[in-house]
Design a binder for these strands. Structure first.
Lengths: 119, 119
DNA sequence: CGGCGATACCTTGTGCTACTATGCATAACT
DNA sequence: AGTTATGCATAGTAGCACAAGGTATCGCCG
């Protein structure tokens, strides 16, 4: 199965910000974390994630720097900022709003919105 | 406040299909129903909904016909098909998948996915 | 040492599509 | 008679996703 394009687009930024909120990370690792979180159903390619990662510093949501560890390849690490955390919280609220609206009309789902943040 | 473009795009089709699953309807009424459901936070314009409504019959998700009631303007009514209900169920599953992935990393949300369909 | 798969990052070109703006038309209210 | 609400539709552009291709290092296996 594969997830609808629009749904992938809508979840991309919040997912990455949420992963970075767990701790700083880098492109390749984020990619694998996303696969792991979705049980393999969200399959981004690296070509898809880098443009997103380049946008985040411009928006002020993350800081970034190269790291050259004693062993292994050099990596570009990203760390979330306060603005990034605020943006994450805002996106969280928007998802709640939309999810609540969907839950109200969804057939056979007794108000899924309760699960989001107000349980 | 206004909802992020990508999130609006991702929710548009499932929302309309869910509304039509409640009973047949037409463009203008669907527009108002969406505003009502979201408490005014999702503000589609009519220019945004009609291209979507035109796509649905092509996908086989709805049937459509003009109605000219004894009083009032003529309207184009849409009714969901079995294929449409199947598509709605599929989208529901995709939302659950993505919501579960988000819930797993979401800060301060103890697994929002439980709310969706598996409570 | 030779080769290959995994790790790691980046860019470009194009094809699709969403949204703004605009237009048309009728009904209802004042 | 004028204005607002109802109701449907499209065109043009501006923006973006995505596949494909490019660079480079590391570790393993024979």
């Amino acid at each position: 199965m594969h997830i609808d394009k629009d749904l992938v687009a809508a979840s991309a930024t919040p997912l990455v910000l949420a992963i970075l909120a767990e701790g700083e990370s880098y492109g390749y690792a984020i990619l694998k974390r996303v696969r792991e979180l979705s049980g393999g159903e969200l399959e981004w390619t690296d070509g898809m994630i880098y443009p997103l990662l380049h946008r985040l510093p411009r928006l002020g949501y993350v800081t970034t720097e190269w790291r050259s560890p004693p062993e292994g390849r050099r990596r570009r690490y990203y760390a979330i900022t306060d603005d990034g955390r605020a943006a994450l919280a805002e996106q969280q609220r928007q998802w709640l709003t939309v999810t609540r609206a969907l839950g109200d009309v969804w057939p056979g789902s007794g108000g899924l919105a309760t699960a989001f943040g107000e349980a």
